[in-house]
Design a protein around this nucleic acid. Sequence first.
DNA 1: TTCGAATATTCCTTTACAGGAATATTCGGT
DNA 2: ACCGAATATTCCTGTAAAGGAATATTCGAA
Lengths: 106, 106
Amino acid sequence: MNEENIAVFAALAEPSRMRMVSLLRSGPLSVGEIAERLQIRQPQASKHLKVLQQAGIVEVEADANRRHYRLRAEPFQELELWLTGYRELWNERFDRLDDYLKNMPD
Amino acid sequence: MNEENIAVFAALAEPSRMRMVSLLRSGPLSVGEIAERLQIRQPQASKHLKVLQQAGIVEVEADANRRHYRLRAEPFQELELWLTGYRELWNERFDRLDDYLKNMPD
DNA sequence: TTCGAATATTCCTTTACAGGAATATTCGGT
DNA sequence: ACCGAATATTCCTGTAAAGGAATATTCGAA
């Protein structure tokens, strides 16, 4: 993971934002819905969403005066890729996983 | 990933620490070696290593007045596990990976 | 075109954290 | 016991980021 992707870790290193990401797993939500479910104020929700957006973790779709935020796949894929460099840490069980990933059909 | 593991993301969200982690992939190193390779001063190296240690990312082994820091596998395993909850984001290719992980022999 | 709902932004204050410099600690060798 | 090497800790300072409150913006509906 390169220096530019440190923003992803920084963005996730905050409880409200981590909860936002978890919340958005089940689909896009508006700012108001997010603020309500996380029990935080709307401006804070907007601010946190901006951070997540700048880190590339979420993207926005405008719908009238609503903004629907959804998770982007890329940072998670990159995280997955980054982790492959550390699989050798635990056991040979994941050597087989590495093989599987390498040979996996697209 | 629960609130306590946010410390892992916070620890990795700093360039020097990220480079330390990458450096330690090839094996344990002493504080002096780490400081030298990363071109930072020894006290900063010690401080960063302390953060990594408290996040559970590294562990220490004392050898006389040297301390050898090594990566721990657990946080990476937990990250791997956490990511599985986001694999559905990209494509069905990883549904098969999920199956593989579920059925993988121990 | 005006109003209210939804969202973004600004300003302010407080707190956390990083780096620098100095110092403390701990160990083996002599 | 003492010295130097290796490491940890403390103190200080600057900066970035978070939350609160207020305000700005943007949109559809009437």
